[in-house]
Amino acid sequence: MNPLKENEKELQQLYKKLPEVKRFLHTFGCRSLDSEDIFQEALLIYTRKKQEATFTLSVEPIHYVKNICKLLWYNQARKTGKQNSVELSDELLVIESSTWFQKEMALQVVEQTLAKLGKQCQEILQLVYGLGWNMVEVAKKVGLRNDKVAKAQKYRCIQKAKELTSETTLEF
């Protein structure tokens, strides 16, 4: 099966556990509204992590996702200064302090910044870097004259994104 499809299928399966995850996060004092966002972020991290060749899962995917949820909620609660009833296991502390996790957190901020770009810019960047399309395909998809124009536009988008993100700390 197409891996994109396969991934979608797995995500569908995992998403069915939303109520369970909500109950789980609720025990740590996370509101239902926040918990779905956290769940989505955890699924995102899981999807990205899975693509790493060296990544191995020692538990069921849903347990991994739940652990990441817990970690994300811990992080969020700490940032917003909420009362924190979460205690992290050693295993989670290791993840919390790992470079990749810190990097994901930093990338989350950059990603939020990218949302401030124009629709076309967002689409171009996602097609190029998210799906690995070439500029000819991209030009066709977003309705630009040819690949050269699309490339020039991509440069502009990157420039804009750089200006928007220059405030963000990028050292990891």
Binding site: L4, N7, E8, L11, Q12, Y15, E36, Q40, L43, L44, T47, R48, A106, L107, Q108, V110, E111, T113, L114, A115, Q122, L125, Q126, L127, V128, Y129, G130, L131, I158, A161, K162, T165, S166, T168, L170
Partner: peptide, 22 residues
Amino acid sequence: QQIAIHEAAQRANARVQIKKVA
């Protein structure tokens, strides 16, 4: 900075898929 933008774009794309699933 540019590497981070690329990765963030990847994330954004993955998020689109997750939103679709949601």
